[in-house]
Design a protein around this nucleic acid. Structure first.
Lengths: 268, 268
DNA sequence: CACTCAATTTGATTTAGATCAAAAAAGTGG
DNA sequence: CCACTTTTTTGATCTAAATCAAATTGAGTG
């Protein structure tokens, strides 16, 4: 294939250009390349800058690419991983929408996040080598698998990548702190408003409309995420609708008053 | 000083023994050593195994030591850092007790954690280079400052350290998920019971009594952390006392029925 | 030691959101 | 297209925890 030849050339360049320190076990670098693997997962990806490759040079991205597995499709409703599964890989959402939820012993469960294109799944599993939550696709999706052992080795080669990854992990800590604040000290309407504003922001960063939201999750999922019951979520949506903040048609929600919604989050 | 001489010898040994790859800028390794810095912060530390050096070899710990700043005392009530401060260092609690809290724009604040010996402060700041919470000492404490830039370089040298650090970050993510579960789907009594059980466990790991807790924080701090009002915390403590689960004398709390307390967390 | 200020406890009352219930709407598959 | 399940909405009622209020305890300071 023509494409592969080009990439091969560039790769040779990368090896020479990047002045990386020697690995203790550099076998995976000097072994003959498997061309079937050279799918250039990241290089042509439209959301590169929102994902793991963010901030890397083209050459570094190419090196990262080499260590990624194929893209993997996940059908709506399927689990990417489940609680207790041994952890081998992180997953970057390429397209689609996921939810993660933890299970409490007594059957209760709580949604801990919704992930869209560019966001990383599985960061929590690094600590114990086992997944501690379930990741379920809420629509037909595609993920990029990142075998973590290889990724850690690559981090040793590319300080740039490692630094970015430290930030990725730290950002997840910050995100969760935001939810702690939301769950611990906001009233129901503030929570829902914050949720919608956040969702809209993330959609618009991805070049999708920041006002026309198509929710992929049920009211129950939203409620679980926000520490509310589904009835409360439904009532609040109706109220926001009545107040002219939103236009609600089932899971299609249009934000009519961005400012008003933002005011709800910050105040009271 | 005699002590320094010994350490110096060992350090020479370390340099030769550890077969680390070359750094792009290895200046800080070959520059003449600053003996005043050689305090051996970690090596003799009793909580080494609970802290950043966990799992490192003696020689690796010595190398880490070389990159740490002095121990730094913090008086009760003082801030280690505040929201908005630029991030330069992580801090490992050596002795003492801290709380971290985030401030909402509208003045509301929420306690996001309590940190004791061996636990790391500042992980959330990596993402933005600014601290996003306040860290306040709840008793006279001592912290070990870990300049983060140097630490990242060291991570590039010692894959072992970097791997451990990835886990440290991931553990923090998991810890916060636990709190999300607590805030989102537990009733007040379960929250408080979970809090006490967790505190007791962490004390006992540190060779302190796992049943005689001396709380360093106010009822309001506890409430803020658990998403409850201080009156509720107080009432619950009184109730647990009446039910024979605890012996409560102000901030001195003795756990009388560990099993009963654990049952509260898991069930209902 | 007494004084002051902060923290804690306890009681009475209110309320936000949960729970229970039932109808309406939207998917889904044969 | 129809039968069937799941999801969503809306109403009536209940309750856990918040709020308001006041007394009590405790810690720190001149």
């Amino acid at each position: 294939m023509q494409g592969d030849t080009v990439i091969f050339k560039v790769l040779r360049g990368v090896r020479n250009a990047i002045n990386f320190p020697r690995l203790r076990n550099p076998l995976h670098l000097v072994s003959p390349m498997d061309f079937s693997e050279l799918k250039s997962v990241c290089c042509g990806c439209s959301i590169r800058e929102l994902c793991l490759p963010a901030g890397l040079t083209d050459q570094e991205v190419l090196l990262l690419d080499q260590h990624m597995s194929h893209r993997q499709p996940i059908k709506k409703g399927e689990s990417l991983y489940r609680t207790g599964d041994t952890f081998r890989s992180l997953y970057a959402v390429s397209t689609g929408f996921f939810k993660t939820s933890i299970l409490h012993e007594d059957g209760r469960s709580q949604v801990t996040g919704f992930q869209m294109a560019g966001e990383i799944l599985g960061l929590d599993a690094i600590s114990t080598d086992r997944h501690i939550c379930d990741a379920v696709a809420l629509e037909d999706s595609v993920v990029c698998e990142v075998p973590f052992e290889r990724f850690e080795e690559l981090g040793q080669l590319m300080s740039n990548l490692q630094r970015r990854f430290n930030r990725t992990l730290s950002s997840e800590i910050v995100r969760e702190q935001g939810i702690m604040l939301l769950l611990g000290s906001m009233r129901s309407e503030e929570r829902l408003a914050a949720f919608l504003v956040n969702l809209a922001k993330r959609f618009s960063i991805r070049k999708q409309s920041g006002s026309e939201l198509v929710l992929r999750m049920t009211r129950e999922d939203i409620g679980s995420y926000l520490g509310l019951k589904l009835e409360t979520v439904s009532r609040l949506l109706s109220r926001f609708h009545d107040e002219g903040l939103l236009d609600v048609h089932g899971r299609n929600i249009q934000i009519l008053d961005q400012v008003g919604l933002n005011r709800l989050v910050g105040s009271t």
